[in-house]
Amino acid sequence: MTNKLEAERPLSPHLQIYRPMLTMMMSIAHRITGAGLAVGFALLTWWLVAISIGPNAYAYVQDFFGSLLGRALLFAFTWALIHHMLGGIRHLIWDTGAGLDKQTIEIFALATIIGSIVLTVLVWIIGYYAMGGL
């Protein structure tokens, strides 16, 4: 009986019905970067634990982070962290009730994308510069 009722209940259109919009993609990106940061947290934990174990464990981690895969992971981690942070600040502003009009939302979305890319590249340039690689 209940199953029959549930089956006949009208369903609201889901994601695939709508034309993809920037703000909707940003909402999805906020979740994906958030989930990705769990991997980043595991990397940070690995790094800290290796330092607490000793020079050999640290050298092993540094070798991994220095590899192409390691650097790709760290670059993705940096971007996800900054993107999620800027997206989070956007959410905190919305929590106050401000910036919820259509135009501001679009500006926030663009600012988060451009800001996260620019800041990530900047962090890596400074990082390489600090290492004497530039």
Partner: peptide, 27 residues
């Protein structure tokens, strides 16, 4: 979330500052 904003900036600063540093320096 509010606490994480300055703390994440600190983490990025810390990692960049210690990029390529020796084991003893990082420790």
């Amino acid at each position: 979330a509010v606490a994480n904003v300055p703390l994440v900036i600190f983490l990025i600063w810390f990692v960049v500052r210690n990029a390529g540093a020796s084991y003893n320096d990082v420790k």
